[in-house]
């Protein structure tokens, strides 16, 4: 009995101290964002890694998500003879929800995990210590460019995803299911506001921050050799994905 309480207490302390470490690291990261040295090339490199290299996966998810949405909602709306609303549904779902969230999750899987693995390896091979010894702050050198890249690139990837989702929905709805193209486009324009798009992009920027920071945090705090790196990578993906979904709820509640 006493042992059980002890275990519970220990795990709570562990969770709390992890949260505390995360917050402290986050504050340190933020404090370096607006302080020199600025590292434009490192940022560009991360922009390429997070953004350009995620294009294909975002294209595929965007197109097919839009297509599936059109397909599914078509059969639902058909019962009410409201097939013309398929465009509006695809547009609203993509811009407000699926564009940002799916992009966030896909990029977490691709880039967030890679960040955790990369920084984790640097940690266990003492490369991070080496940076410190060479009088370079590892937070500023490793985490800040990645977080900036995440915040910048996720909205851009999300715009692509939104656009391709709508295009995929158009293809399925208009070309395969025979909804009139005017109805698809007009209802979409009628029901989807500019604020839907922009709020979705704000969400995406938050998701970019989450996935980059969690990936970096998990990598930065890796211990236990190669095995530890593997664990950190998995944890980064799980944690970032969960946090993205939780944050999505609160952001949605705040914005819409």
């Amino acid at each position: 009995m006493f042992k059980l309480i002890n275990i519970i207490g220990l795990s709570i302390t562990k969770i709390l101290s992890e949260m505390g470490r995360m917050v402290l690291l986050f504050i340190e990261t933020l404090s370096w964002v607006f302080r020199p040295p600025y590292r434009p090339f490192l940022i560009v490199k991360q922009l390429e890694f997070v953004g350009v290299k995620s294009t294909l996966v975002v294209i595929i998810t965007g197109l097919f998500t839009g297509g599936v949405l059109a397909l599914q909602t078509y059969y639902g709306f058909k019962m009410f003879s409201a097939e013309s609303l398929v465009g509006a549904t695809v547009g609203l779902s993509m811009t407000r929800e699926l564009g940002p969230v799916l992009t966030g999750l896909m990029v977490t899987g691709r880039a967030g995990s890679a960040m955790a693995a990369e920084i984790g390896t640097m940690r266990v091979t003492e490369q991070i210590d080496a940076l410190s010894v060479l009088a370079v702050n590892p937070v500023e050198y490793l985490i800040v460019p990645r977080v900036i890249a995440g915040v910048i690139m996720l909205p851009i990837l999300t715009v692509l995803s939104d656009f391709l989702g709508i295009a995929g929905g158009y293809f399925v709805g208009v070309n395969l299911l025979g909804i009139s193209s005017g109805a698809y486009i007009n209802k979409l324009i009628q029901y989807v506001d500019l604020s839907d798009l922009y709020n979705g992009l704000i969400k995406a920027a938050c998701f970019g921050l989450i996935l980059a920071f969690v990936g970096c945090y998990k990598g930065y705090t890796t211990s236990g050799g190669a095995e530890g790196v593997g664990k950190a990578t998995t944890q980064a993906v799980v944690m970032a994905s969960a946090m993205i979904l939780v944050a999505d709820y609160f952001l949605t509640a705040l914005m819409f």
Partner: peptide, 27 residues
């Protein structure tokens, strides 16, 4: 690398402006 990122951002911005313009309509 810089060129790649540049092209990517450009495509993203074009998509953004296109969507904004279309959706903005009456706004």
């Amino acid at each position: 690398i810089e060129a790649k990122v540049g092209i990517f951002v450009l495509i993203g911005l074009i998509a953004l402006f296109y969507l904004s313009f279309q959706l903005g309509g009456l706004g």
